[in-house]
Amino acid sequence: MQANGTVFVYGDNVDTDVIIPARYLNSSDPKHLASHCMEDIDAAFAQKVRPGDIIVGGSNFGCGSSREHAPLAIKSCGVSCVIAKSFARIFYRNSINIGLAILECPQAAENIRQRDEISIDFDSGVITNKTREETYQAEPFPEFIREIINADGLLNSLSKC
């Protein structure tokens, strides 16, 4: 499994209220959520993002509420992966459960810059920065989590049991 895209960089503690503000939680329609994704910290994100693009955050990405609408909004924008120094735990498990790829990699989060072009090999955990000709090593997913992501989410993996 591979991803290729242009990067949007954000800072530390990107919370679920800025990923998808609660005023839009009166619907869980993916298109509705995607159209407001990141609105309160980057109003133009939903217009700028293209399928396959990648979000890079600092530490504690996705902190705050348990709203699954947050990873859903990101996934529905066509984002192929979120890379961060670290993730808040509910966001982490929600992303895995809905099949949004996420990688913890402090080295990548520190060195990747806005609009860099990168590619990711999920099996090896290698992130290649094509703009800067650098590579970073992320921990590949443990087997248990890889099964859920490969099944495109927890419930698909359950129904295969």
């Binding site: 348990s66 498990r93 459960n97 809905i98």
Partner: peptide, 24 residues
């Protein structure tokens, strides 16, 4: 709901999850 951790006050293990975990 992320504030499900409230019930730890009663000496229970409780934690917030997302909707897919709730469904499962």
């Amino acid at each position: 709901d992320s504030h499900t951790c409230t019930y730890g006050a009663l000496g229970a293990f409780s934690t917030g999850v997302g909707s897919t975990d709730m469904a499962a």
